[in-house]
Amino acid sequence: MADEEVLQDTPHRRVVRIGDTVRRPMHPWTPAVHALLRYLEGVGFPFSPHVRGIDEQDREVLTYLDGLSGPQSWAKVAGDAGLAAIARLLRDYHDAVAGFRPPDHLTWFTGETGLAGGELVCHGDFGPWNIVWRDERPVGILDWDYARPANRLHDVAYALEYLAPFRDDDECLRWLGYSQPPDRRHRLELFAGVYGLASVEGLVDAVIDVQREGIERVRTLADAGAQPQARWVADGHLEELGRRLAWSLAHRHLFEA
Rank of each mutant, 00 (worst) to 15 (best):
H154A: 10
L65G: 10
R174P: 02
E171D: 13
R148Y: 02
G118H: 02
V139I: 11
A96W: 00
D95N: 02
A78S: 00
R185D: 04
F166L: 13
L190I: 02
D104Q: 07
R101M: 11
G79Q: 04
I86M: 08
R174C: 09
P182M: 01
V156R: 14
R134W: 00
E60C: 15
F126I: 02
G118I: 09
D170H: 10
Y162Q: 10
D143V: 01
D104A: 11
D168E: 10
A81I: 04
R59L: 13
E112M: 03
G118N: 01
W129T: 15
P102T: 02
T113I: 01
G202T: 05
G82V: 04
W175D: 15
R59Q: 15
E112C: 13
E161P: 08
H186K: 03
I141P: 09
L142Q: 11
L89C: 10
A192K: 07
G127I: 07
P182N: 03
H105M: 06
G118Y: 00
G99S: 11
L142C: 13
V61L: 12
H105I: 01
L160P: 05
L163Q: 04
D183R: 07
R187C: 08
P102A: 10
D95R: 07
L173F: 08
L83K: 03
Y158V: 04
R185I: 03
G117S: 15
A84S: 09
E60K: 13
A78N: 04
A116D: 14
A164Q: 04
P103H: 00
E60T: 13
W175S: 12
P128Y: 02
Y146A: 15
G111D: 08
W129Y: 11
H186C: 05
Y178M: 12
L89A: 07
D169C: 06
R101D: 02
R137E: 10
P103L: 00
R185C: 08
L176F: 08
G127V: 12
F109K: 04
P149E: 11
V139L: 01
V121S: 10
G196T: 07
L176E: 15
Q180G: 09
D80P: 02
R167Q: 13
H123S: 12
E171M: 11
A116I: 06
D143T: 08
P165L: 00
P128C: 03
H105N: 05
L173T: 08
G114M: 03
W108E: 08
R101V: 01
Y178N: 10
G196F: 12
R174Q: 14
D135F: 05
A192Y: 05
P181T: 03
G177D: 12
I141F: 10
E171L: 10
L68A: 12
P165D: 03
Y93P: 09
L62H: 14
T110K: 00
D95Y: 11
Y162D: 15
F166S: 06
R134L: 06
